[in-house]
Write a protein that binds this DNA or RNA. Sequence first.
DNA 1: CAAACATATGAATAATTGTTCAAATGAACG
DNA 2: CGTTCATTTGAACAATTATTCATATGTTTG
Lengths: 123, 123
Amino acid sequence: MKDYQEYEAEHCDSVEVHADLLKLVREKMPKEEELYDLAELFKVFGDSTRIRILFVLFEAEVCVCDLAEHLQMTQSAVSHQLKILKQNKLVKSRREGKSIFYSLADAHVRTIIDQGLEHVEED
Amino acid sequence: MKDYQEYEAEHCDSVEVHADLLKLVREKMPKEEELYDLAELFKVFGDSTRIRILFVLFEAEVCVCDLAEHLQMTQSAVSHQLKILKQNKLVKSRREGKSIFYSLADAHVRTIIDQGLEHVEED
DNA sequence: CAAACATATGAATAATTGTTCAAATGAACG
DNA sequence: CGTTCATTTGAACAATTATTCATATGTTTG
């Protein structure tokens, strides 16, 4: 990250509004770490394989092998993605014998995807 | 993409549930293209620079140069990200003399980010 | 306990992506 | 009309990431 001076140099001159806005933005903007976590969360939704996994889990609790079949993907690929979903607490797992069953961990998952769908579907 | 046989081979044997679930999932799962668009949309939210831009725009309509200053980033980097935000209709722009002012294009933006925040903030 | 099954993991590869730098538009203004 | 200012654009580079392949872990069953 460059130091502040360098950016200060290249800035336009709508000075009046700046003071207020700067203050406002600094108040409302989440902390650096939270911003990072937020981006990280959305990154998880930003892959169509993971989205497809979530859509299956919207309907039922399913084992890895069944997911792989539904999505017509390698079991390994699915497992890798499930790990990411789990790390981000979008999904939880439960062992039953040899199989491990995955299900949604959180109601937000559905809401977030639904909002995304609304945006994508309009116009 | 491999052909179906190969995936069929490596599948476990909870056969009973399969028929119903398969049908259900196929009904509810959006089309391939929509899934792709959805992932694409979330990819846009999956970068902390773009998130930060959006948080500034939550407060006010702002020109590129002011954004660069707020975020302490190169004006070029900001412009590149604004282009992505605009292509995905999260942001709109308006020229006023030499400057170009950006603002939110859509109410969903706020909702999606808020839901994400809720998820990140819990536990 | 060995064999079979379900899943996880690690390394490697190919593809995607954010930032920088340099240069190109495009508008205002003397 | 040439200069200046605000922004965009394109190429290049570094970093991240999804999938594959091979192998490991863990569970059941004979």
